[in-house]
Amino acid sequence: MPLVEVSHLVKHFTRDAGLFRAGTRVAAVNDVSFSIDEGETFGLVGESGSGKTTTGRCLLRLVEPSSGTVTFRGEDVLGFSNKRMREARRDMQIVFQDPYSSLNPRMRARDIVEEPLIIHKLGARAEREARVAELFGLVGLNPAHLDRYPHQFSGGQRQRIGLARALALNPSFMILDEPVSALDVSVQAQVVNLLMDLQAQLHLTYLFIAHDLRLVEHICSRTAVMFLGKIVEMGPTAALFAAPQHPYTRALLSAIPVADPDAPRQRVVLDPTSVNRDAGLREISAGHWAAV
């Protein structure tokens, strides 16, 4: 049984009618289905407006889906009461892109990491302090810096604080929404290594949302490509990168700048008329699906 199963997920955003315009309804996520196996890193890629971030938030109900189902360990997440949802969030965490705006600047690092434990009423004070110190070590932060404020840390260190906070409740599933794209290039690799180490050590399952296809290719076991609210292609990462089937996937992969001045460049430009918007996903080869 997959750990997370998403089927026919839909999220509409409505724009109210104004004085001079009619109301509109936009499907940010339009009939999206996928599942994530325990222990894997599932990549969700797409460009801005593709619906990848909204999809991630729907799984945690940070955004309420319009329809569809999300199950976690076989349980219907969208049917959870508020109380049950709070409990479930202990097991499902999210790490955001921007380590500059996602940490409260008035809180010390130790308080930021401890807060989820307090909210969930876990442990006595001394136990919580020990746990915070342990988490600091786990993400490679210096315990001497526990009392510092976010601005006293570099971007990479702040992202480690965000990770420590997300890990505080011992989740099994983490949504990583562009976790390294705001970081300096020389620091990105450190955080990517940390994510891979933590996954192995804590048996985590990741939903990795990203636009950096080079990174997705490196760390994701399976990848889904979103385009205009739909998954247009999904499969084992190696197969998808080696033989992309959907015109959009082909255009996307060919647009990645290659860090090799001698690499042949064969840009595939997306011809919108080549996309059959009504095509459903069909299996091209084992586990490799494309809407063609």
Partner: peptide, 12 residues
């Protein structure tokens, strides 16, 4: 794929 990246230690 999946191999650790060769990171530069420290920060800017």
């Amino acid at each position: 794929p999946g191999q650790r990246l060769r990171a530069i230690e420290g920060s800017v």
